[in-house]
Design a protein around this nucleic acid. Structure first.
Length: 563
DNA sequence: CATCCCGACTCAGAAAAGTGGAA
DNA sequence: TTTCCACTTTTCTGAGTCGGGAT
């Protein structure tokens, strides 16, 4: 589990002094009050300005009509051509179809780091052997005697061949994909045609857990129609299973939003076919009713944090009461931070750590449900997650206020925006690996900057000369020449400035992922209001997908919007 | 009650696919 | 021009949250 509450301490570093005093608790409350969040935002057609309006959703009913074609199934396995061999112990060996298919899963991944990991290898080999014929099982006993290199090469070549295809062929493939999208990628929801987010079943393969996942390499089985539950409305055209097959079940549950589901064999969890986030159903943000404002100052910490994850320093680098966090959060992203805390917090932490082993839970009396229950006592609808969202949005707004300079040009304003966004990403610990091409592209940019500087120097010289010339000759032509040179100089300066801004942005963004917070945490109305206020085109900060998802906000937010 | 387990849904970075600008 | 490649966008599916019901 990830630290939510812990993050609030972190905040102090990003925006000093703004976190959790009475003022911000008031803000939080106000926010919840004013946010009559659009439950099922609906566009009223034909009305002036086409506004988004709230629609009551009684007792969890999500739709009245739902019609679709069911999932599109992954293509069947195509056997390897005869000249591609698998070798065991140096000898070519023809595998049964099922065994071969699984062998290709491994072969395809040969150049991936996964296949060097022991856990991955063992899990794969175990599961593979389960699918082998009796004869195969007798022969294939050790993974290190298996040679998948021809299989690997076959797929690498195939990939390259596909890339090298002539234009017309590629176009054909593209059209085919579009046909699929048309046929299976949409559904009818309450009379509207809506895009489906994932209309294909997940193809079989080897499970790729993140971090040190104990199940990495296990066989992810092929999903069959017999595994799939269909959900649609009773009176709709019920999707046809592929010929010769049956659905596991067809149900008509309008209290859920999924169109189809199946249980995946690795973790035994349920997978869903659901709508694209741009669809109206997904716009539903938490419906928030106001309540008393409360105090949560003492509830610091994440429920499953263990003693070994923190270190207490009475004093460190001239600061008092430092908590050093070091643990892996969601997606095995490391969270490392040194946070100054108030003395009572520090004392309590000491208390919680007394007489415990490193592996013991730090907050052994705390679970997510008791924490959330407690939070709900303080304010209706308040959960740890709400903190995260609230934190992110209020930080963005605050940072935008601090960083934006109305006199700046658009490029500089965007840098300010990105910096504010960055503060949020850091707050939420949205990290990324430094891109592989980072150094190189940084260098490229630097080269460009240097070139531009040179051009600028030349332009300055020329302007000087032109001025001198104009002084002597005083002709109309020489005067217009001066103007021309001036314009050029200004243009170059502008360009240089933009490049430098870009470089700064890039450098600062080296290890920070902005997308997640932008898409999932930040109230888009803040960004849109900012754009309107400072004359920055919305497209500069939101790409197409994002604009689709936030269509409702673009429609309603004005520059006065305050979170 | 508390605790566990599961269903539904959001969030997340990697990888694939697409794009546009420089060589 | 066309090709190439770096960068952007989309897709994919694993990893969380949270509430509710069974134990």
């Amino acid at each position: 589990m990830r630290i939510n509450i812990g993050n609030r301490l972190w905040l102090k570093k990003v925006v000093s002094g703004m976190w959790y005093d009475t003022k911000s608790s008031h803000l939080l409350n106000t926010w919840r009050r004013q946010c009559f969040w659009l439950v099922t935002a609906q566009r009223r057609k034909g009305s002036a300005g086409s506004r988004w309006q709230e629609e009551k959703s009684e007792d969890g009913v999500k739709w009245k009509q739902l019609e679709h074609k069911g999932p599109y199934f992954a293509p069947l396995y195509e056997p390897l051509p005869d000249e591609v061999h698998f070798y065991y112990d140096g000898k070519a060996m023809k595998l049964s179809l099922a065994t071969e298919e699984i062998a290709t899963f491994y072969g395809k991944m040969l150049d991936h780091e996964y296949t060097t990991k022991e856990v991955f290898q063992n899990n794969f080999f175990n599961d593979w052997r389960k699918e082998m014929t009796v004869e195969e099982k007798k022969i294939i006993k050790h993974l290190n005697k298996c040679d998948f290199t021809e299989i690997h090469k076959y797929f690498v070549d195939k990939n390259e061949a596909r890339k090298a295809l002539p234009k017309e062929e590629k176009q054909k493939l593209k059209e085919e994909a579009e046909r699929l999208q048309e046929a299976f990628g949409y559904c009818i929801l309450d009379g509207h045609r809506e895009k489906i987010g994932n209309f294909k079943t997940e193809p079989p393969g080897l499970f790729r857990g993140r971090g040190d996942h104990p199940k990495m390499g296990m066989l992810k089985k092929r999903i069959m129609p017999e595994d799939v539950i269909i959900n649609c409305s009773r009176d709709s055209k019920i999707p046809e299973p592929p010929p010769g097959h049956k659905w596991k079940e067809v149900r008509f549950d309008n209290t859920v939003t999924w169109l189809a589901s199946w249980t995946e064999n690795i973790q035994n969890s349920i997978k869903y076919i659901m709508l694209n986030p741009s669809s109206k159903l997904k716009l539903a943000l938490r419906a928030g009713n106001e309540k008393e404002e409360g105090e949560t100052a003492d509830t610091v910490g994440c429920c499953s944090l263990r003693v070994e994850h923190i270190q207490l320093h009475r004093e460190l680098d001239g600061q008092e009461h430092i908590v050093e966090f070091d643990f892996l959060g969601k997606d095995s992203i490391r969270y490392y931070n040194k946070v100054p805390v108030e003395k009572p917090v520090f004392k309590n932490l000491q208390l919680f750590m007394e007489n415990k082993d490193p592996g013991d839970e730090l907050f052994d009396r705390l679970t997510t449900s008791t924490l959330n229950k407690h939070l709900q006592d303080l304010m209706d609808g308040l959960t740890a997650k709400v903190f995260r969202t609230y934190n992110a949005s209020i930080t963005l707004q605050e940072q935008l206020k601090v960083l934006t300079n109305a006199e700046d040009n658009v490029a500089a304003k965007i840098l300010s925006y990105n910096r504010a966004n960055r503060a949020v990403a850091i707050l939420c610990n949205h990290q990324r690996a430094t891109p592989k091409t980072f150094e190189k592209s940084m260098q490229n940019l630097q080269t460009k900057i240097d070139a531009k500087k040179e051009q600028l120097a030349v332009a300055k010289q020329e302007l000087k000369r032109a001025k001198a010339d104009a002084k002597v000759r005083k002709s109309v032509k020489s005067k217009s020449n001066v103007d021309k040179k001036k314009k050029l100089l200004a243009k170059l300066e502008e360009q240089l400035m933009r490049l430098c801004t870009q470089a700064t942005d890039k450098e600062e963004n080296k290890q920070v992922a902005l997308g997640t917070s932008k898409l999932n945490y930040l109230d888009p109305r803040i960004s849109i209001a900012w754009c309107k206020k400072f004359g920055v085109p919305v497209e500069k900060i939101y790409n197409k997908t994002q604009r689709e998802k936030f269509a409702w906000a673009i429609d309603m937010a004005d520059e006065e919007f305050e979170f």
